[in-house]
Amino acid sequence: MTERQPQPLLDGLSAPHRARLLGLADDREFPADMRLFDEGGSANRFWLLRSGEVALDLHVPGRRPPVVETVGAGQLLGWSWLFPPYHWHLGARTLGPVSAWEFPAHRVRALCEAEPEFGLRLALHCAAVIAERLQAARLRLVDLYAPDGGGPP
């Protein structure tokens, strides 16, 4: 299953909106083990991954940052750029070589304001991503694969 990689965000936009968004993108290639951003830093970019995988981690004093989730091909990396104060909630590091479209946050936000229909579509997609990740985090809290199936009957 290696044909065209699905890109849910781009696939959910109309062709003109997709072209406008991609018009703001830079093609980027990142090597393995590269730090893309740190928790608390300025969220001035985001990425759509075409290949490779990025680990999202949390700063814990005195410990190697534990990985809380990974984001892979076809997925959105970063949504902190959409909401003030535009600071990253987590850190990110590439697990292997990564290719991605990189978007400048301020220009995309400006486009959202200038074209409300585009802004709505993009915001809805980001909201869906956030909701999905929240749901995933909740499922993992239940510890479904534990020997007791996640808790007493």
Binding site: T2, P6, T70, G96
Partner: peptide, 18 residues
């Protein structure tokens, strides 16, 4: 700490296959 693969729920992998 040694794990270099994906982390998260299995449904997140659905976006990665065409």
């Amino acid at each position: 700490p040694q794990w270099r693969g994906s982390v998260g729920v299995v449904t997140a992998l659905l976006d990665r296959v065409a």
